[in-house]
Nucleic acid binder design. Sequence first.
DNA 1: CCGCTGTAAGTAAGTGTTCACTTACCTGTA
DNA 2: TACAGGTAAGTGAACACTTACTTACAGCGG
Lengths: 213, 213
Amino acid sequence: MTSRGRGEATRERILAAASTVIRERGLAHTTTKEIARVAGYSEATLYKHFTGKEDLFLAVLRIRLAPFIGLMVQLPDQAGSGSVPARLTELGHEMLRVYEESAQLAMALFAEPVLLDRQRELFRQTGAGPQHANTVLADYLRRERERGRIAPTADPVALANLFLGACFYRAFLVAFLGPAGDQLLDHDPDRFVRELVAAMPYPAAGASGAAAG
Amino acid sequence: MTSRGRGEATRERILAAASTVIRERGLAHTTTKEIARVAGYSEATLYKHFTGKEDLFLAVLRIRLAPFIGLMVQLPDQAGSGSVPARLTELGHEMLRVYEESAQLAMALFAEPVLLDRQRELFRQTGAGPQHANTVLADYLRRERERGRIAPTADPVALANLFLGACFYRAFLVAFLGPAGDQLLDHDPDRFVRELVAAMPYPAAGASGAAAG
DNA sequence: CCGCTGTAAGTAAGTGTTCACTTACCTGTA
DNA sequence: TACAGGTAAGTGAACACTTACTTACAGCGG
């Protein structure tokens, strides 16, 4: 159990190389040979640190999915601090960023059912999963509604689904359409989030929905 | 140019087999050998009808993506007919179904950058693409707003992004979480769509947002 | 109606390549 | 000496794709 330093560094270099190669070549065309080349080790070294390709891919996956899973844990505690639109704007940008980082690999799993099953198994064991984002945001919105900062007739669960869904779909479209997407999707991210936030039903004077159009 | 009947039938059987195998084994582990076996032909026959694996995959992709792309063309013409909640409910269910059918394969493309690029190229050439769903729905909502059936302060573009995003994200979560998702996502589809539709900002008497709870 | 020919549909049996993974070995150090 | 870290050089399997072949039949001059 002493002197693990070198080994761990190697492991991390391999993980970083794998992550890079997956990004560049796609999950399906990532080979052990190429990972080893990028990491600066021989292929055999990969097998000293991981039991196989699947093990290595799952390790990368978990690193990349961590923010996707863990993003929102801190959100509900802060109900009441800061204006609701300000917090939602912040959240929207963060979701767009995280989804763009993580969702591409998560989606690529649909090409690899074995890895997908393994990841599901992990969700089952840990009780985590992307669906918790909805729960957490709904909780936050419910508290803000109790404080009178969200329209009293609004449905927090539906609003959470709408808000997160719009962010996720946007991230998907950006990734799916590629560089050309900037022209096809005629809004910039700032405006996109601003309009989403404005469309939330706030309680007061004006009509709710598109309060600040 | 006469008597193509047999050949076309073969082509379609191959396409159907490829579609089946992709569903069952995943895009990455779909082999020409297995497609031929399922189709009931030899591998060589595949190459009489398609120039290669990539050509075959793209043909499947285009068949599967067709409803994803073309779903909404008929929507805006019908503004004014039927109640807005009724039409949105219908649309929501249809989107969930179409996304579940098509989106899985679309997402699997993130594992195969070459195929993804080819599909983008097709989008560019034809001017089609999934982003048009947003445009079309936004147009519909704008017309209904002019008719006074959507809150006058509402932002049609934002509402379209929210509504379609929620449907897409829902379809993603269902596919990603797999069979266990039914327990993790504690709503059934009917209720899910009903709550989305209710959260749209209608103009009248009560507060908008969650009008019909 | 015959016999000939061109061709489309289909296949058995490969080919070369690439892949994930292994073996046998070397080296520095506690 | 024991062992962790690392490697060169494989190995068998799986893959996309090809070659050389058979079969069926449509078209057509006689």
